[in-house]
Amino acid sequence: MADRMTPEQRHKCMSHIRGRDTAPEILVRKALFASGFRFRVNVASLPGTPDIVLGKYRTAVFVNGCFWHGHEHCRLYSMPKTNTGFWTQKIQRNRRRDAAVAVRLQARGWKVLTVWECSLDRARRKKTLETLEEQIRQNGEEYKAELAARKAALQERRARTLSSRERKNALSGEIYSRYSIPRRIRKASEDFDSLYDSPDGMRDECQD
């Protein structure tokens, strides 16, 4: 199908398309807020500046326009007939950037969800939003489980460290009680143990 716009008209049309706070983004935000989710928007501190960030659920949501992000096999993705080379390269760059951003977010422990503009039409909107909310809640459960596992591992390491110190103290007490060690030698031994346990202290002593 031939492009019915002149190059000037096409440029003017494209330049008026908003990059943020688009109608699809606002629709998704309102739906999530109404369902009890709380979030931040356009978070520049994260790769790709996600449209919606739900920290409690460790989830980043991108609401993508089908044309600008090159949604394959979509009725809203139609390459302009004028200046086709420029638009082809631009869409390809956007796709590569989207993939790279997802990898960087996942490396930081974030789950990445994408909502396409076409999936928010009247026929599919309800199903799309229900699926999105379900995925967010599932991500939240996985994140809570991950935090619990980290906490348990930390507590286990602390317990092992404490147990090691207790065994050392018990052994020292048994040696001192079993053998008659002069107080002067015992004090020197304790001072050495304290110095040995502290790398900084040992280094300072060696330098002196």
Rank of each mutant, 00 (worst) to 15 (best):
R104N: 11
P199H: 09
C13E: 01
H73R: 14
L120Q: 08
L54G: 00
N169I: 05
Y77M: 14
K56Y: 01
L171N: 08
S198T: 05
T88S: 01
T88N: 01
R165I: 11
Q89S: 13
L32H: 05
R38I: 01
A102V: 06
L27T: 15
R104C: 10
E134C: 08
P24Q: 10
N139R: 12
L54P: 02
S15N: 08
E166G: 00
K168A: 12
V53T: 07
P47R: 06
P50G: 12
S119A: 15
G109L: 09
R40E: 09
V103Y: 07
F33I: 00
N64C: 03
G201T: 04
V63G: 01
D200H: 03
Y143V: 02
D98N: 15
E146W: 03
E174Y: 01
W116G: 08
W110I: 07
L113K: 06
V63W: 02
A149G: 02
T161F: 12
E133I: 11
F67E: 06
E142K: 03
D208C: 02
V61Q: 02
G140E: 13
D98S: 09
V53W: 05
P80D: 05
R178P: 01
P50S: 10
N169Y: 05
S189R: 08
I26Y: 14
Q138W: 09
G55H: 14
S78K: 15
R165W: 15
D193T: 12
R96T: 06
T49D: 07
R40D: 11
R124P: 08
T59L: 05
A44F: 08
L195C: 09
Q106N: 12
H69S: 02
M1S: 07
A170W: 03
I91E: 05
